[in-house]
Amino acid sequence: MKRTVPLMIAATTGFVLIVSYFIPYTESWGEDAMTWFNILAAIAFILGGGNLLRMQLQKISDRRPGWGYAAVTLAAFVITLFFGLFKIGVQPTAAFPTNAWAAPYDREGSALWWCVEYLYRPLASTMFALLAFYIASAAFRAFRAKNTEATILLVTAFIVLLGRTYIAGIVREWLPEGLQSLSFDNMTNYIMSVFNLAGMRAITIGIALGVASTSLKVLLGVDRSYLGAGDE
C-alpha cells in the first residue's frame, strides 16, 4: 500500500503517456493525464507556501536566532496571500463590469499588483544583478591560465567577451580586407556556431541518454529513490 501502489501509479501514468504519443486513439488519455499533472503542479505551489508557513512559525515559537526576520517573512507571506486570494483592490474589467472576481488577480492598481511591481520585481532582478559583481571578483581571483585546458577556456572567453561588443566593430575596420574573418565578432560567430555547437551537441546527446535511462528506471520500478527511505 505504502510502496507498491505508488510504483504502480508511476508506471501506469508513464506508460500511458508513452503509448499516447504513438497511438492517435489514445492521445486524449495523455492530455487528461497532463491536465491532472498541471493541477498537481499548482497544488505544489500551495504545498510550498504551507511548508514555508510551518517553518517560519516553528522558528518564531522556538525563538531561534533570526526569528525576527522569520516574522517579517511570515507577515509578507500572509499579507500578500490575503491581497491575492481576496483580489483586494481589483477593479472589474469591461468584459464583466459588475463582477470584480472575474478580473485578473494582478490587475494594475490592485494590492497584489503593488506587491509584485514594487517589491517582487526590484528584489528579484537585483538578486540576479548582484552576480555581475561576484563574477568580476571571481574572474580576478580564480580565472588563471594554469594549464592548456584553462588557457583554451580563457582565450575563448576573451574572444567572446570582445566579440559581442562595439570594440569588435572597430577592430574589424582596422583589419585588411583579406583578414576580416579574424575579427573578434566573426571569430565569436565561428566559435558559437561550430565549436560551441559541437560541444553542446555532445553534451545534449549525453543528457538525452541519461534522461531516457533514468525515466525507464523509474517506470520499471528500478529507481525508487523518490519514495524515500522509511515507511512513513
Binding site: G49, F77, G84
Partner: peptide
C-alpha cells in the same frame, strides 16, 4: 522577498 514570492506563487 521570500514571503511575497511564496504567497504570489500560491495565488
Amino acid at each position: 522577498f521570500v514571503g511575497v514570492s511564496a504567497a504570489y506563487w500560491m495565488v
